[in-house]
């Protein structure tokens, strides 16, 4: 039993070290660009932002609106019973902007783009496209990993902030229709509860979640060796590990700040 725990712990550390190596290499490639292939890497980055960020806007809008509506519906019907009807604005800040916004955005990005990256890189490994790039003298980290990581991080930050705004808007729709709270009163409640550190923290979470998801998905995609059946296996692992890592990061960031 102790041996099993020890083996798993070592494997866990090795996994995290591999992710950290991948992410730090991508960071180095970003801050120390070479003239070679700059335009090509830039094009991959733009495509990644379009896919992860822009294309995800409709689904993010729908989910954020629904989350905002659900939370304010629940808060608006329960809080007045406790004599805390005035906290409707702050409830959306605490639940959505601090927690659900970054987490749900991360889950959307994992489901849409993380799995797509893992699948794409997995297929590229099986069809030996990754080897072909190496043979052409094109660094995988610079041409494949860095643009995907940077694209995902930028998209995640923007999508998280967008999610928060839309969820607040969704909350307002219910607050106005069901609870007859006027827009300015609702906005005042939100602004009173919202601090600049909340906004900074939500952006920080976007940055950390984006880096983690991109590193996990690239790692698992490139871990595929020689069979197409490995692709869905690694994609599933990438998805589950991304979820777990995002929740872990969330705990590590949130607990010391708010406890």
């Amino acid at each position: 039993m102790i041996e099993w725990v020890g083996r798993k712990t070592i494997a866990g550390y090795a996994y995290l070290a591999a992710l950290a190596t991948l992410a730090s290499q991508a960071l180095l490639d970003l801050i120390l660009p070479t003239r070679q292939g700059r335009r090509e890497s830039w094009l991959v980055l733009v495509r990644q932002i379009l896919f992860t960020g822009v294309d995800a806007l409709p689904v993010t809008t729908v989910i954020a609106l629904l989350v905002g509506i659900i939370i304010i519906t629940q808060a608006g019907t329960q809080l007045p019973k406790l004599g805390a009807g005035g906290l409707v604005g702050s409830i959306i800040v605490v639940t959505v902007i601090r927690e659900l916004g970054p987490l749900l955005t991360a889950f959307i990005v994992v489901g849409r783009s993380g799995t797509a990256i893992a699948t794409e890189l997995g297929n590229m490994s099986v069809t030996r496209e990754v080897v072909a790039l190496r043979l052409m003298g094109i660094p995988i980290s610079r041409f494949v990993i860095m643009p995907r990581m940077v694209g995902m991080v930028l998209s995640m930050i923007c999508l998280t902030l967008y999610f928060d705004v839309v969820a607040v808007l969704g909350g307002y729709l219910v607050a106005n229709a069901q609870l007859t709270i006027p827009f300015y009163a609702f906005l005042e409640g939100v602004m009173k509860a919202l601090s600049s550190s909340d906004v900074a923290l939500t952006a920080l979470k976007g940055l950390l979640f984006g880096s983690a998801v991109a590193a996990v998905c690239c790692h698992h995609g490139l871990a595929v060796r020689s069979s197409f059946t490995e692709v869905p296996q690694q994609t599933t692992r990438a998805m589950i590990n991304s979820f777990v890592l995002c929740l872990l990061i969330d705990v590590v960031v949130t607990v010391p700040l708010y406890l």
């Binding site: 590229m124 030996r128 496209e129 080897v131 072909a132 043979l135 003298g137």
Partner: peptide, 15 residues
Amino acid sequence: RLRLGTVLQQPGLLS
């Protein structure tokens, strides 16, 4: 690498 051209059994054209 830039002085070497290689085509393997699986040619690896980017899909």
